Amino acid sequence: MNRKVDETKSLEQLEGVKWPAPPPDATGLVKASYGLRKLPIGRLNAHELSRLIGQDIGVPWLLPLALDLLHGAAHDQSLGVFYDDDLLTAALTRRSHVWRSNPGWVTKMKEIISALDDISPHIQEDIQKFLKESGSRE
Results as ranks from 00 to 15, higher is better:
Asn2His: 02
Val5Cys: 00
Lys9Tyr: 08
Lys9Asn: 09
Leu14Ala: 03
Glu15Phe: 06
Gly16Asp: 10
Gly16Tyr: 14
Trp19Arg: 14
Ala21Glu: 15
Pro22Tyr: 15
Ala26Cys: 13
Thr27Met: 10
Thr27Arg: 12
Gly28Thr: 07
Leu29Arg: 14
Leu29Gln: 13
Lys31Asp: 09
Ser33Val: 11
Gly35Gln: 14
Gly35Tyr: 09
Arg37Lys: 14
Pro40Arg: 05
Pro40Val: 10
Pro40Asp: 04
Ile41Gln: 01
Gly42Phe: 06
Arg43Ile: 00
Ala46Val: 04
Glu48Tyr: 00
Leu49Trp: 02
Ser50Lys: 03
Gly54Ser: 09
Gly58Trp: 06
Val59Met: 04
Leu63Asp: 03
Leu67Trp: 06
Asp68Tyr: 06
Asp68Asn: 10
Leu70Thr: 09
Ala74Glu: 04
His75Glu: 08
Gln77Asp: 00
Gln77Ala: 08
Ser78Asn: 13
Ser78Tyr: 13
Leu79Phe: 14
Leu79His: 13
Gly80Tyr: 15
Asp84Gly: 07
Asp85Phe: 14
Asp86Phe: 13
Leu87Tyr: 06
Leu87His: 07
Ala90Gln: 02
Ala91His: 01
Ala91Glu: 01
Leu92Phe: 07
Leu92Met: 03
Arg94Lys: 08
Ser96Arg: 15
His97Ser: 12
His97Val: 13
His97Tyr: 15
Val98Asp: 12
Ser101Val: 07
Asn102Glu: 12
Pro103Ser: 09
Val106His: 10
Thr107Gly: 04
Ile112Arg: 03
Ser114Ala: 14
Ser114Thr: 01
Ala115Asp: 12
Leu116Asp: 02
Leu116Tyr: 00
Asp118Asn: 15
Ile119Leu: 10
Pro121Ala: 15
His122Ile: 14
Ile123Phe: 05
Asp126Ala: 10
Glu133His: 08
Glu138Asn: 14
